[in-house]
Write a protein that binds this DNA or RNA. Structure first.
Length: 952
RNA sequence: GCUGAAGUGGUGGAAUUGGUAGACACGCUGGACUUAAAAUCCAGUGGGCAGUAAUGUCCGUACGGGUUCAAGUCCCGUCUUCAGUACCA
């Protein structure tokens, strides 16, 4: 037994880790804690490709490193197992999503006869140090019991704007009983009317509940939602990209529906502020800042002449209030009908009709066309009392601010364009600025003019004074506006968490905690009902018996003791917004995680995942954590202290080039001027030299059976290559299982890291694997220099050179891991092994620490070598080697000698030489004299220990 | 348009504070071993020019300037690519 039999070694240690529970974390330990988390996967039927484990490998290296550094490491894994693909598959095949999900995770054969490896087996093959004893699946009732519980907590809470915290709804009821809602600073719907304590006490129970619903952090309300007819469900803002659904690219329309919403907007400011204290990439923070979209300014109310109504607007530039020459309302604005004069009615109606037909997408794509119509009505300027014409225009969005703007054409380009198009005057309120060609949007350094009491003031002072005067007049006040909208929380789907909600007289009632979970009912079909109700409308046993506290048959509904249950389910992000807490205590049946576990593990120290969740998962998780914090359930205020976003691994697609209109294929280098059509060929049919296995290709598809091939001279057929996203449809998917089979998991792990910087997108190229693989073989050989390549380690201490190699490797690898620069450590290991091989080093005092150094990257081979070194315990928690600088101390330096900044030759000189001595030695060198060729240098720069530069 | 990241050999990439550009690999070329292939090992490999060769020499980090004894690295401007975002008042 001498060769590097990676298959045997890897299977052996994976079994060992599993049976010894090597990576199980304990919830109490003398060691400091460290929590390393991956974004958990959605277990799709397609399985893993080599792009998926990239982040997991990086986090695994870090987790293993931290164990070597003496930390109690929590490194769990689980599945985000509710979601659309399983449901779509269920609709197509009739299989229960729970069954297909289980097969996708655990492996097996599905009802279609497809063999599925299963995520768990695929992950296990790569040798991750996950603590699987804490696994969670969001679709397990034991898990979603707590998702339902958190929903109830949100329902039972309101947001106090004075303390900027969520509080128990009971405290709000007490306030209402004593003071009504006249004094309380609470986040609520704008439709809430003022009431006194007496009025509150006189309200019916239903009325009270109706009012409270407008204050709760999750609430049921008729809102305008994004309805996707193709998916048959509503979507949240972050699930829509460019006006179409993120999944499938289907059209999305606006529709009024009664839906559950999350009052995330209450947390806008705290979500913004919280970004300051966390270590995330600037780009992701910026994405969140943009999404929250804070803008500071003022609301100004414009009185409409002869109507007795006011139009509130939001503006960031109250300093330009004297530049207002018109107002624009969104076409959907609720006052439009009321304000439009008889003369303008026809035109306004036609315009509204036309804009409502334009899809969201058209409106966005077509920014340049300026459209609008005059309503015939006039508002009054709050200061000058001048009449201001009121227009409608679709550049004003109903969903932002108040859906109306005060137009200042001299200071806003869109207003300027609108005014120019419709020949509306453009009064100039800036001193010495030309606005004949474009609006003047700069704030700094601009002085206000033609503006009564604001004349001569700069932006900041004018802003403050304008707000002050508006407030004095009662026509406006300072206001901060956020773009962030409340998140719709209902989905008309089957495969999601059911709400723990039933309805009494149309009012939602929460089911008590003791009766959770409310399990998904069985249905025949996973489609909406004929009446357009969500799939749960098909369930026969979906009613709540409030006496028996049980889900019972719909036949029993009497609306006295048995009531209908909610038919919607929760969105995909519900379960993923808190899963990181469940790992801390995943089996607890009494609480979502015990106080002890929460206090010990606190939050995630390192989170690794893709950046595509910037406005979804990462924002919702922060919101839920802040909420749980406010209500005293957790001590932390942010879920993820540090985050790294791994880049995508791209596929290298292979194309066979077919001559247009024929069944003849041309090898890539033989293409001349034929018009050719490149077709994707499966990358598994192509070897690393870009040669196609022609026979396999013929058999791949019926249509290629009789294809002709114009080959190279040597009879091979070359494909052309292109880098694209890795995807099944492009036939460029590389399966990690095959790599593990052929080269081993350690090779896969190191190669994925070797590809390039973790955060960068980079193409996969299977050919490069052999470099890393032969490195591992060389590493193996270093320990097997005995007869017949037997294991042979000497007890004699390593040479000075070997110690130097070892310690510079320790230093570099430690720095690299801490900087998440894993690609450079792989080359450092290669250099170390090359050097030690050249030195013929086989000393225990070098090879032992070397095995520990490499174990985070290539844990299987490290364990095997460690046991061969005579150790009986796993290498996993052995202390990381300590860097000793003394081994790197040099007595001399090979100085680069440059002339005018260009290196010409090098010269070995002792490091303790003085500047003058170095200069003298260099000048005395024959090459120096040769290069100078008799000239006298103007200057000689000597940087001891670095460089010598001769100028002249 | 705005925001963020990035442009280095045939390819992936290295150069952490300005100090020997191209580490480490892949690929390619030549050689050793072999009946042969695979595997393994050795040597070479940024480009141009000169030379049998050792070597010499010039050019080179997207482009154009600048600072400096010295710039892939710092400053100013331009271009390109990728990602996110978009009529946000």
């Amino acid at each position: 037994m001498s060769k590097y039999y990676f298959n045997e070694i890897e299977a052996k240690w994976q079994k060992y880790w599993d049976s010894h529970q090597t990576f199980a974390a304990t919830n109490n330990s003398e060691k400091p804690k460290y929590y390393v988390l991956d974004m958990f996967p959605y277990p799709s039927g397609a399985g893993l490709h080599v792009g998926h484990p990239l982040g997991y490998i990086a986090s695994d290296i870090y987790a293993r490193y931290k164990r070597h550094k003496g930390f109690n490491v929590l490194h769990p894994q689980g599945y985000d197992s509710f979601g659309l693909p399983a449901e779509q598959y269920a609709i197509q095949t009739g299989q229960h999503p729970a069954d297909t999900t289980r097969v996708n995770i655990e492996g097996g054969v599905d009802k279609q006869g497809n063999t599925i490896a299963g995520y768990r087996k695929q992950l296990d093959k790569i040798g991750f140090s996950f603590d699987w004893s804490r696994e969670v699946r969001t679709s397990n009732p034991a898990y979603y019991k707590w998702t339902q519980w958190i929903f109830i907590q949100l329902f039972e809470s309101w947001f106090n704007n004075e303390t900027l915290k969520a509080e128990d709804i009971k405290t709000l009821v007490t306030i209402f009983e004593n003071y009504g809602n006249t004094t309380v600073q609470a986040v609520c719907d704008e439709t809430v009317k003022v009431f006194t304590a007496e009025m509150w006490q006189a309200f019916s129970e239903t009325k009270k509940q109706e009012i409270l619903l407008k204050y709760r952090l999750t609430y049921l309300a008729e809102t305008e939602v994004n309805w996707c007819p193709a998916l048959g469900t509503v979507l949240a803002n972050d699930e829509i990209v460019n006006g179409v659904s993120e999944r499938g690219g289907h059209t999305v329309v606006r529709k009024k529906m009664t839906q559950w919403s999350m009052r995330i907007s209450a947390y806008a400011e705290r979500l913004l502020q919280g970004l300051e204290g966390i270590d995330w990439s600037e780009s992701i923070k910026e994405t969140q800042r943009n999404w929250i979209g804070k803008s500071v300014g003022a609301t100004v109310s414009f009185e409409v002449k002869d109507h007795g109504v006011k139009i509130p607007v939001f503006t960031t530039r109250p300093d330009t209030i004297f530049g207002v020459s018109f107002m624009t309302l969104a076409p959907e604005h609720e006052l439009v009908d009321q304000l439009t004069t008889a003369d303008q009615k026809a035109e306004v109606e036609a315009y509204r009709e036309a804009t409502s037909k334009r899809s969201e997408r058209e409106r966005m794509a077509d920014v340049k066309t300026i459209t609008g119509v005059f309503t015939g009505a006039y508002a009054e300027h709050p200061f000058s009392k001048e009449p201001i014409p009121i227009w409608i225009g679709d550049y004003v969005l109903a969903g932002y601010g108040t859906g109306a703007v005060m137009a200042v054409p001299c200071g806003d380009q869109r207003d300027w364009d609108f005014a120019t198009k419709f020949k509306i005057p453009i009064p100039n309120v800036f001193e010495g600025v030309d606005i004949s060609e474009a609006a003047h949007t700069d704030k700094e350094g601009t002085v206000i003019a033609n503006s009564d009491f604001l004349n001569g003031l700069k932006y900041k002072k004018a802003l403050k004074l304008a707000i002050y005067e508006l407030e004095k007049l009662g026509a406006g006040k300072g206001k901060t506006n956020y773009r962030l909208r409340d998140a719709v929380f209902s989905r008309q789907r089957y495969w999601g968490e059911p709400f723990p909600v039933y309805y009494v007289d149309g009012m939602p009632q929460m089911i008590a905690k003791e009766h959770l979970p409310i399990r998904l009912p069985e249905v025949e079909k996973y489609l909406p009902t004929e009446e357009g109700e969500p799939p749960l409308g098909r369930a026969d046993v979906w009613a709540w018996d409030s006496n028996a506290n049980a889900v019972v048959s719909n036949d029993l509904i009497d609306n006295k003791t048995v009531f209908p249950l909610e038919l919607n389910t929760m969105p995909g992000w519900a379960g993923s917004s808190w899963y990181f807490f469940r790992y801390m205590d995943s089996k607890n049946e009494d609480v979502f995680a015990s106080k002890e576990a929460l206090d010990y593990w606190k939050n995630v120290d390192l989170y690794i995942g893709g950046s595509e969740h910037g406005t979804g998962h990462l924002l919702y998780s922060r919101f839920w954590v802040k909420f749980l914090h406010d209500r005293g359930f957790v001590t932390v205020d942010e879920p993820f202290q540090k985050m790294i976003n791994q880049g995508m691994i791209l596929g290298t697609s292979a194309f066979v080039n077919r001559i247009e209109g024929t069944n003849t294929f041309v090898s890539a280098t033989k293409i001349t001027d034929q018009s050719i059509q490149p077709l994707h060929a499966d990358v598994s049919l192509v070897n690393t030299s870009d040669e196609l296995d022609v026979e396999a290709f013929r058999n791949w598809r019926e249509e290629f059976k009789n294809a002709e091939f114009i080959t190279e001279e040597d009879g091979t057929f070359k494909v052309s290559r292109e880098v694209e996203k890795m995807s099944k449809s492009k036939y460029n998917v590389v399966n990690p299982d095959e790599i593990c089979e052929q080269y081993g998991a350690d090779t896969l792990r190191m190669y994925e890291m070797f590809l390039g910087p973790l955060e960068q997108a980079k193409p996969w190229n299977t050919a490069g694997l052999t470099g890393v693989h032969s490195f591992l073989k060389k590493l193996w050989k270093l320990y097997h220099g005995g007869e017949n390549e037997s294991f042979n380690v000497s007890e004699e201490n390593g040479s000075k050179d070997a110690l130097k190699t070892l310690h510079k490797t320790i230093k570099k690898v430690q720095e690299d891991i801490e900087n998440f620069s894993f690609n450079t450590s792989v080359s450092t290991f290669m250099i170390a092994v090359n050097e030690l091989t050249a030195q013929k080093c086989n000393s225990r005092n070098i090879l032992e620490p070397l095995a520990v150094l490499i174990s985070p990257y290539a844990p299987h081979i490290a364990e095997e070598l460690w046991s061969k070194l005579g150790k009986t315990e796993s290498i996993a928690t052995v202390a990381f080697p300590v860097f000793e600088p003394k081994h790197l101390v040099e007595s001399s330096k090979n100085y680069p000698i440059s002339f005018n900044g260009k290196m010409k030759f090098t010269m070995e000189l002792p490091l303790d030489l003085s500047k003058d001595d170095i200069e003298a030695a260099v000048m005395a060198h024959e090459k120096t004299q040769q290069i100078l060729d008799g000239r006298t240098p103007k200057k000689v720069i000597v940087v001891p220990g670095k460089i010598v530069n001769i100028v002249g």
